[in-house]
Design a protein around this nucleic acid. Structure first.
Lengths: 180, 180
DNA sequence: TTGTTTTTGCAAGTCATTTGCAACTAGAGT
DNA sequence: ACTCTAGTTGCAAATGACTTGCAAAAACAA
């Protein structure tokens, strides 16, 4: 990383370790850790699987952490201070994180894959409702296809069955004709 | 189409019109027309919307007609006698057919869109179960997500909600270790 | 048959994503 | 703290799905 020698792990993690008291760290009820402390957890996951905790990876995780909806590679890249890392590195890191189960890939059919940080051990499995007019994304809580999945698996003798389910429609705002 | 001047509409349709008695023409119970007669119906749909019935389009429809599973553009192209038409024409025709509602697009997450002929007026809405090991595709009858779709639409105030749902898993044959 | 409009082939372009490779660095070992 | 090495990164170039521009060719109506 010759172009940005200052982005070492120390600079980012160092400041993080002083943030234990971040009021947003724990979202009550969910048990999920948020805020910057979350980032420390994430980098620990990397270390735990003996992957190196590099500047680009921390930045990418930090961007993912602050995104409420699945983001494309380009969106993640755009949200990093310019010069932080190469676009290719985002692709490679995302692939790594996906393989580690730290992020989940979604496909909304617009040609670019989207990624979202996985929460909790169950992976926080859920689906999305996407406005076909303004691209607004609504995160749907929980999954209603579990039974279906089991039925389909059993009926066809398949194992390790998973599913991909997304909904598309026109959101309330776009129904009024006000393109947002 | 300088390279294949002999592929006129007459050559294909002509032979079709003599095939009314094709034993596979009507699949009992379903009311769907199959066999070559189906192709005549399809070309009529083109004419009805004043799109030209060309050689390439007939060939493409004929390939789609014989495919049991959604096929990629390349697969459709590969199934046409060489020189029948350009790959680009398959892309363009598929886009046209999709716009007309004659074919439906699916995405199994492998980078290439897949297309399947639509049957009946309801569109024969259904889903697929794909083996992640050997790519085998199982067509699942009916759709189990209709209620969900309505609930999601109502709860979020969306209109014209549709959904995309596919299942992925390991098929019986691949579970035994025999890669097929 | 002619005329108009649509369609096609070919070449080139776009865009997401991947890959080759040399330079670089995080973290382990010393 | 210093070295070593495997894992990472940047850059450039490649890949692959899909699209677009344009002139030649074909469908079909008059």
């Amino acid at each position: 990383m010759s172009s940005s020698p200052g982005i070492g792990g120390a600079s980012l993690l160092g400041s993080l370790e002083t943030c234990r008291g971040d009021p947003a760290d724990v979202k009550e009820g969910t048990g999920h850790v948020h805020g910057k402390r979350r980032l420390i957890e994430l980098t620990e996951q990397l270390r735990a699987k003996s992957r190196k905790v590099t500047g680009p990876r921390q930045k990418i995780l930090d961007v993912l952490r602050t995104n409420r909806h699945p983001a494309t590679i380009r969106e993640v890249f755009a949200q990093m201070p310019r010069g932080d890392c190469d676009l290719v590195t985002v692709y490679r890191s995302m692939h790594l994180l996906e393989g580690m189960g730290m992020v989940k890939r979604f496909d909304f059919g617009d040609g670019a894959a989207r990624f979202e940080l996985v929460n909790g051990r169950d992976g926080g499995h859920h689906h999305h409702l996407i406005c076909t007019s303004c691209d607004r994304i609504v995160e749907l809580e929980d999954c209603f296809a579990q039974e279906m999945e089991e039925a389909v698996a059993a009926r066809n003798g398949f194992k390790s069955v998973t599913h991909k389910l997304e909904f598309f429609g026109v959101c309330p705002k776009c129904q009024t004709g006000h393109r947002v």
